[in-house]
Design a protein around this nucleic acid. Structure first.
Length: 253
DNA sequence: AACCCTTTCAACCGCGAAGGC
DNA sequence: TGCCTTCGCGGTTGAAAGGGT
């Protein structure tokens, strides 16, 4: 007995998406919002499985995606994050706004891996292939520290942003960020409960003992949008829709 | 122009986690 | 508590594009 298929394969399309399928998916999500991927294809009139729809939306159709080449800064950030997190592409993508885990994974395999190899570094361990000095980012080269190792499952019991991490990558904010879902004008914003639940889900460890500022979690501490330090209330959750809009919603628990 | 090889990246697959009952 | 369903993630595949001969 194998695992039951995620959908009825006999009546689903596979392979590249057509323009019409894209339009159908976009129109449906604009009207009803994301979620319920299992039932979405039927409701949207698509002969695709839910997983395929989800992937197409997340990796290609989402309006907040940043298309185009990776910048040098993004390159460096990916390398740093990979040194600390390993192949946790979704976590790495969470630190690069507008980039998807699939995109970063592909970019790693096609560009960065080769780049590191050409520098004599093992892409998995970030250690030199033939001995010598361990991998160091430009900033590290100014003040070399211990070699970064990908986290393993045991390490994950610790805080995501430890003092050790800060020692290794002082300019790196490893707090887990939250990618906000896309809401159409017709669909409703998240309820207070779902926002706090999302916060609890993604920051479960810290949320037990301290308030969460999403600005900080998104790495915007220095941005004026973040005013968490001026908010004395210990249970304020701040949501930012986007940097451009400068909008935010406070959710109090 | 034709063929072959390499590179890129969208899409698929299988698995584990999470949540509901 | 255990089962079932759904979702999300990471690894892998394969078609298309690009480049070389």
């Amino acid at each position: 007995m194998g695992r039951s298929p995620c959908c009825e394969k006999a009546h689903t399309n596979k392979g590249a998406w057509t323009k019409e399928e894209d339009q159908r998916l976009i129109a449906y999500i604009k009207a009803h919002g994301e979620g319920c991927w299992r039932s979405l294809p039927k409701s949207a009139g698509l002969l695709r499985c839910g997983k395929s729809c989800r992937l197409r939306w997340i990796n290609y159709l989402r309006p907040d995606l940043k298309r185009g080449n990776f910048t040098e800064e993004e390159d460096e950030l990916i390398i740093k994050l990979h040194a600390l997190l390993g192949n946790k592409w979704s976590l790495i993508a969470g630190r690069l706004p507008g980039r998807t885990d699939n995109e970063i994974k592909n970019y790693w395999n096609t560009h960065i891996k080769r780049k590191l190899l050409s520098q004599g570094l093992d892409p998995q361990t970030h250690r030199p292939l033939h001995g010598g000095a361990p991998f160091a980012t430009p900033r590290q080269q100014e003040a070399p520290t211990a070699i970064a190792q990908p986290v393993n499952s045991a390490d994950e019991g610790q805080s995501c942003s430890t003092n050790l991490d800060e020692d290794r990558f002082p300019d790196l904010n490893l707090d887990l960020s939250i990618s906000l879902p896309y809401y159409s004008p017709k669909s409703s914003p998240p309820s207070e409960g779902s926002a706090t639940a999302a916060a609890a889900a993604t920051t479960s460890r810290s949320s037990h003992t301290q308030p969460i500022c999403f600005c900080c979690h998104l790495g915007f501490q220095s941005n004026e949008a973040c005013s968490c330090q001026t908010i004395p209330n210990s249970h304020v959750y701040r949501y930012i829709r986007s940097l451009e809009e400068g909008q935010h919603i406070n959710y109090s628990s």
